[in-house]
Nucleic acid binder design. Structure first.
Lengths: 203, 203
DNA sequence: CCCTAAGCGGACCGGCCGGTCAACTTACTT
DNA sequence: AAGTAAGTTGACCGGCCGGTCCGCTTAGGG
């Protein structure tokens, strides 16, 4: 019996604290990346540090759970787009959703993938498959150039948020949209120059 | 008398150690970013940790010196390109040099600019001016679209290395060239879509 | 209402890291 | 060759962080 998670239902206060904790962790990781400390997360949630470790045996487990939520939501939204009549617009919409996450560049934490949590890698795989589908359709419809692969898009999807993160503090919180537009233009067939290196293969 | 650095010439062994230290720091920062520890840098250089702090009062000062070297070399190379007859190619060549730095994504450390070292901000400013020049000429020659500013390029210049850094371990060390080509295509006039947000203003 | 197990929390531990220091070594001067 | 200032070094310090633990609180069933 490996992997059984639900022994019994959570007590009411525990469930509330767990939700507070996850929300706080999401905000804290978004703001400070992997350097966010467990103590700070606990403080932001208004609970004790020990309680964090009661809910998640490890900081990495907490991070995994947060990422799982995000990836799940993004994948679900993306899957709803696969039926769109305009594959190019669908891919752009998906990338917009992916880069949005309140202009944080931390979704990239996903890609580092230190925690090899089983459920997380599975969710990752599901999202990669989705992206492959969106990219294939966009490619076949002529919306993006022929030599772009799903892996390319996986690697590029967090770049707008990351790039915009370097802007000086006063800048528009929507700046990532500017760089998404530029990068997506680079994926279009118009005026495409030949690409010098083969795309990587994802594990 | 503020800013006088050269009281007297360094002793021979001290000069040698300083060079070893800077080389080791460059490699270590490139490999592990800001998380590189002073002890590891010292070990890589084959010197004691105390010696590091004799040469640089602070880890940030050491980092600043390394960045200063890099920015200086890159700026010098870039200034040699401003005379080129093909402004578009000159900009692309500059971006290639910038992203190259052995495919490390850590040049971005520059942009975070925690250390407000006076010389470093000056070097930064000189490089920004250079980039502005290269971009203006490329824009006026029609090599890149009209709505791209120097600031855009400053923010985008490290993206290829950063993006390629997420690729699985076995990938080509030249993968950044692929993403530089894609992003640069996004800067070209052909098939450009209107940009949704104004560019930021650099301090 | 009361009992108990589930949940909570903060003091505590070991390890790491940036930075200091005083004892030791070594390159240059005369 | 000898003196000395410059340079080196590793033990050491304080602070932070992930993770543990045990005494306390409280939800919720009977």
């Amino acid at each position: 019996m490996v992997g059984m998670t639900s022994d019994r239902p959570l007590r009411a206060d525990a469930a509330r604290n767990r939700a507070l904790l996850l929300a706080a962790a999401e905000r804290e990781f978004a703001a400070r990346g992997l350097d966010a400390s467990v103590a700070d997360i606990a403080a932001r949630a208004g609970i004790g540090k020990g309680t964090v470790f009661r809910h998640f045996p490890t900081k990495d487990d907490l991070l995994s759970e947060v990422m799982l939520d995000r990836i799940g939501a993004l994948t679900a939204a993306g899957e709803r787009l696969t039926g769109s009549g305009d594959p190019g617009a669908a891919l752009l919409e998906f990338l917009t959703l992916a880069a949005d996450r309140q202009q944080n560049a931390d979704m990239s934490v996903l890609q580092e993938a230190h925690a090899v949590n089983e459920r997380l890698t599975e969710a990752r795989g599901r999202m990669f498959t989705l992206i492959e589908t969106l990219v294939t359709r966009a490619r076949e419809s002529g919306a993006i150039r022929a030599d772009i692969t799903g892996t390319d898009v996986v690697l590029l999807m967090c770049a707008p948020g990351h790039v915009a993160g370097f802007a000086p503090p006063g800048s528009s919180p929507d700046l990532w949209r500017r760089y998404l537009a530029i990068i997506f233009d680079g994926l279009r067939p118009a005026g495409a120059s030949p690409l010098p290196v083969d795309p990587p293969r994802m594990s």
